[in-house]
Simulated scan of single mutants.
Amino acid sequence: MDHLLHLDRTLDELDPPRWPVPAADATHLVRKVHQLRCVPLGELGPADLRTLVAQRVALPYVLPLTVRLLVEEPLLDAYFYEGDLLLATVAVPASAWAVLPGLAARLRTVITVLPDATVAALPRGAAGQLTRFVARPPTGAS
């Protein structure tokens, strides 16, 4: 299924069950994620996607949008620093990519063409994260 066909729908619609209203004492992050589930996918910005990816929310719908942005601008500064969306995305567990093997392959290609100097300028540990993502066996491999 092409998850990008649903840009007019929200995660609450696409990823049931709908989440209840957060508790009155919920953290800012919890309230933000709940709000983002009510935004049509096509209206989610890079910072929104970074938040959803980092919190592992509705990844089959969020990762296609995220990778689409990263193909265009791998080191996009979504919220905190240059490359933050990429690093949040490669930190997603391998199991989340199982339903999106072609997307994982596209992201691997994007990462492998990044200049070494660019990768070296990312925060400490980033090069290792990127290397581990690229080295992961494709879904279905032993």
Rank of each mutant, 00 (worst) to 15 (best):
R136N: 05
G45Y: 10
R106C: 09
L130S: 03
G45I: 07
E43M: 13
R124V: 15
G128M: 11
A120P: 12
G140S: 01
R68Q: 12
P46E: 06
T66A: 08
D77H: 15
H34M: 01
A121T: 05
E43Y: 12
L63K: 02
A47G: 12
L11A: 01
L69P: 08
V62N: 01
V67R: 01
A104F: 07
L65E: 02
S95F: 12
L63C: 02
V67Q: 01
A105Q: 11
V39R: 11
P20V: 00
L59M: 06
Y81P: 05
D48N: 03
L122Q: 05
P20A: 01
V110M: 10
H3P: 11
S95R: 11
W97R: 00
V67Y: 07
D77S: 10
L130A: 03
V92W: 03
V90P: 06
E13S: 05
G128K: 07
P138K: 00
P64C: 00
P115H: 08
Q55H: 14
A126H: 07
E13L: 12
A91I: 01
P16T: 00
D25W: 13
L59Q: 04
P93D: 01
D84L: 03
T109C: 13
L63S: 02
T131M: 13
A58I: 01
V110A: 03
V134T: 05
L69V: 04
V119Y: 11
R9T: 03
A135D: 13
L87N: 01
A23I: 09
V92Q: 03
P137F: 04
L4V: 01
R106Q: 15
D15W: 15
V62T: 02
L75Q: 02
R106S: 14
R18M: 10
F80K: 07
W19Q: 13
E72M: 10
R31D: 09
V99K: 09
P64K: 00
T112I: 05
T131S: 15
V134N: 06
T51Q: 04
L85C: 02
E13Q: 14
L100E: 02
L100V: 04
H3K: 07
L130F: 13
L122C: 09
L44Y: 09
